[in-house]
């Protein structure tokens, strides 16, 4: 047993970790966005990717792309203020190294699919926008379902 352990046994430590897991599950439950929000975000991010891929040389698709971007920001703001009204102020900036890394990688993957789709559509692959839109939409749904703020935190064990 370590000197800084406050002389607690392994069983007591396990018990404390069980309480912690319980609290993490409660946090997961109230932080997870409702189903309607996740579905709306899936369509917005999927639509944004599709519109961006179609936007080269088309002012109409560029306009649609802007509409989806505005819709994305508005939906995020609505969710932020909804949680605030429910008594939870969400952290905007990631705090730990793991959270920063996780945010960077997930953002990079979505952006890479979007930029890749734009380039491939220009090269003549006309099926790319629908495939990339579906991938990004489903990816967004998965992220919003499984990696809420506390989700990222739980997975940063040992940091």
């Amino acid at each position: 047993m370590k000197q800084n352990s406050g002389n607690i046994s392994v069983e007591e430590a396990k018990d404390a970790l069980m309480h912690l897991d319980n609290a993490n599950q409660l946090a997961e439950k109230y932080l997870r966005p409702p189903l309607v929000f996740r579905v709306v975000m899936t369509f917005i991010i999927g639509g944004l990717t599709y519109a961006a891929a179609m936007s080269s040389g088309s002012s109409l698709w560029t306009f649609v792309c802007s509409i989806f971007t505005i819709a994305l920001l508005v939906t995020m703001l609505v969710h932020y203020f909804y949680l605030r009204s429910q008594g939870v102020k969400v952290r905007i900036c990631p705090l730990t190294r793991f959270e920063r890394w996780f945010s960077f990688v997930s953002g990079f993957v979505v952006a890479a699919i979007l930029v890749g789709a734009m380039q491939l559509e220009k090269a003549g692959y006309s099926w790319i926008p629908i495939v990339s839109g579906t991938i990004n939409g489903l990816l967004a749904y998965y992220m919003f379902s499984n990696f809420t703020a506390s989700g990222a935190r739980i997975k940063s064990e040992g940091e």
Partner: peptide, 22 residues
């Protein structure tokens, strides 16, 4: 270390702040 205090910290930690009633 007290169970309730550990859980209070765990509930606040992922957020900027949480209301007492929550």
């Amino acid at each position: 270390h007290a169970p309730n205090r550990l859980q209070i910290c765990a509930l606040i930690a992922p957020n900027s702040s949480v209301e007492f009633s929550v």
